[in-house]
Design a protein around this nucleic acid. Structure first.
Lengths: 180, 180
DNA sequence: CCAAGATGTGATAGTCACTATCATGTGAGA
DNA sequence: TCTCACATGATAGTGACTATCACATCTTGG
């Protein structure tokens, strides 16, 4: 399955996402088209597929026990993404570039952000740091937007600025929003 | 064009978004399928299509001249949406229900929110209330998330709670997050 | 008033993502 | 070794979307 994804990424980067058909990927990976659909569900999922969201949510939930919301988020981002950042930096950069170059992928990425927001909503509610469901929804929405902005910033700099510092910056900005 | 959209909404509500083909809509509206694609571009755009975003952006830009960011947003929401709220409440409710019942529409709605965020980013930058592009991005993301949360709240109550009060609530929550 | 361009429409044919279904092959457990 | 469970591959289909063409309806300039 990882092999299929790698083959697909190579083809997408070489020819563009839209120009590569599922059948071409299947041929290149020496599997049937049906297998790709069974494993990934859609063409977009061949690119947008990682296990970072659950890890991040778990880390935030843990930090929320002892820190206020934004501090917890920042600590979770820095802590849980450090390992990823070290091991998979190149792969994430590749995927990020591909997503930003492909409208169809941006759409699904936006939908993924909504899913993350819903999950974060539950975490915030469970932690009792959000007083009620509406507060949890607003908090989660603002936080996910801030995380997305941090990743965007990181991609803007082609990954040269450390991801942790990008998040630090965006969270600091969010703090200042009320005063702007 | 408005007639086609009305026909499509009726069919979608009666049979479900996925169950209605473009060809069926074309037949019901007595046009060719090609005409629908020319005017709306995609099946989803038959539902997600309004001119509220430009109006809202204009209103925010105007308010930003004299008010801090969150106050400007709140004033713009209350002011510019009052007319819409009065005249098109029922239609917006219908569309909102349809979107929330249809995954494919949620995805495109999320992409629309990203477009709104990008536009708001420019407005914030131009107003000089955001010090730099990164601040504008974070502000815009958080604000759009807060607006979405307000609309969600409104839809949760089937439109019984005034939309303006929903926005008031969510913006107040956003303020508290930043100052927490 | 008319020729001529511009624009919007309908129809046809085609591509491709995605689904449903079934037969085959492979590995785990009795 | 037999069998059940499960993943795979292949086939046939649906429907969204594109490209292209001919035609009808305006809109201009003469």
């Amino acid at each position: 399955m990882a092999r299929i994804q790698a083959v697909a990424l190579d083809l997408f980067e070489a020819q563009g996402f839209e120009q590569v058909s599922i059948e071409a990927i299947a041929r290149a990976a020496e599997v049937g088209p049906a297998t790709i659909y069974r494993n990934f569900g859609s063409k977009e999922r061949l690119v947008l597929w990682d296990e970072y969201d659950p890890m991040l949510l778990e880390a935030i939930a843990a930090e929320l026990a002892e820190h206020e919301v934004l501090a917890a988020v920042q600590r979770a981002l820095v802590g849980s993404l450090a390992a990823i950042y070290r091991d998979e930096r190149a792969r994430i950069l590749r995927r990020g570039r591909l997503i930003r170059a492909t409208p169809a992928l941006q759409v699904v990425a936006a939908a993924d952000a909504v899913m993350l927001r819903l999950a974060l909503e539950q975490v915030l509610l469970a932690s009792r740091r959000a007083a009620d469901p509406l507060a949890a929804r607003v908090f989660a929405g603002a936080i996910v937007a801030t995380i997305v902005a941090g990743v965007d910033r990181w991609l803007d700099g082609e990954g040269r600025e450390p991801l942790a510092r990008c998040f630090q910056r965006t969270i600091a900005h969010l703090r200042r929003l009320a005063l702007a």
